[in-house]
Lab assay of single mutants.
Amino acid sequence: LKKGSQVEALFSYEATQPEDLEFQEGDIILVLSKVNEEWLEGECKGKVGIFPKVFVEDC
């Protein structure tokens, strides 16, 4: 996944840490960066945070 690409949430993700990005199933997320193999940083609904890659798929 490249910076600036968009992904769609397959499942809702509930934030458990302040840096987490919370979203609902079906939301479109703009990928800002790759944190590591399992986590991405993205923006959704004006909020920025990190989230697990397994919760999303390429649009």
Rank of each mutant, 00 (worst) to 15 (best):
L1W: 14
L1V: 09
L1S: 10
L1D: 05
L1I: 13
K3H: 00
K3R: 07
S5H: 09
S5P: 01
S5Y: 14
S5D: 15
S5C: 12
S5F: 12
V7M: 00
V7P: 05
V7W: 00
E8G: 11
E8W: 15
E8V: 15
E8Y: 14
A9C: 14
L10F: 05
F11T: 08
F11D: 01
F11R: 13
F11S: 08
F11V: 13
F11W: 07
S12T: 11
S12K: 04
S12Y: 01
S12C: 04
S12N: 10
Y13P: 10
E14I: 08
E14R: 13
E14Y: 10
E14F: 09
A15N: 01
A15C: 08
A15K: 08
A15L: 01
T16A: 06
T16F: 04
T16G: 10
T16Y: 10
Q17M: 09
Q17D: 03
P18E: 06
P18I: 03
P18K: 04
P18A: 09
P18T: 04
E19T: 12
E19M: 06
E19D: 05
E19G: 15
E19L: 12
D20M: 13
D20G: 11
D20V: 04
D20Q: 13
L21I: 10
E22V: 07
E22L: 09
F23W: 01
F23G: 10
Q24E: 15
Q24I: 03
Q24T: 09
E25K: 15
E25C: 09
E25W: 02
E25A: 14
E25V: 12
G26E: 06
G26M: 11
D27G: 05
D27N: 02
D27E: 00
I28E: 12
I28T: 14
I28G: 09
I29C: 05
I29Y: 04
V31E: 02
V31N: 11
V31Y: 06
L32E: 09
L32F: 11
L32Y: 09
L32H: 14
L32R: 15
L32I: 12
S33T: 09
K34H: 13
K34A: 08
V35K: 12
N36E: 00
N36W: 02
N36H: 09
N36R: 00
N36V: 03
N36K: 13
E37W: 09
E38A: 08
W39P: 04
W39A: 03
L40W: 09
L40Q: 04
L40V: 06
L40G: 00
L40F: 05
E41A: 07
E43W: 07
E43Y: 11
E43L: 06
C44L: 08
K45Y: 05
K45S: 03
K45G: 04
K45E: 00
K45N: 14
G46V: 04
G46M: 04
K47W: 07
K47Y: 02
K47D: 01
K47R: 11
V48I: 11
V48F: 05
V48D: 06
V48N: 08
G49P: 02
G49Y: 05
G49F: 06
G49R: 02
I50R: 11
I50D: 08
F51D: 03
P52Y: 02
P52C: 05
K53M: 05
K53I: 01
K53H: 00
V54F: 10
V54C: 14
F55S: 02
F55M: 13
F55W: 05
V56Q: 04
V56P: 00
V56N: 07
E57D: 09
D58K: 14
D58V: 11
D58L: 05
D58C: 14
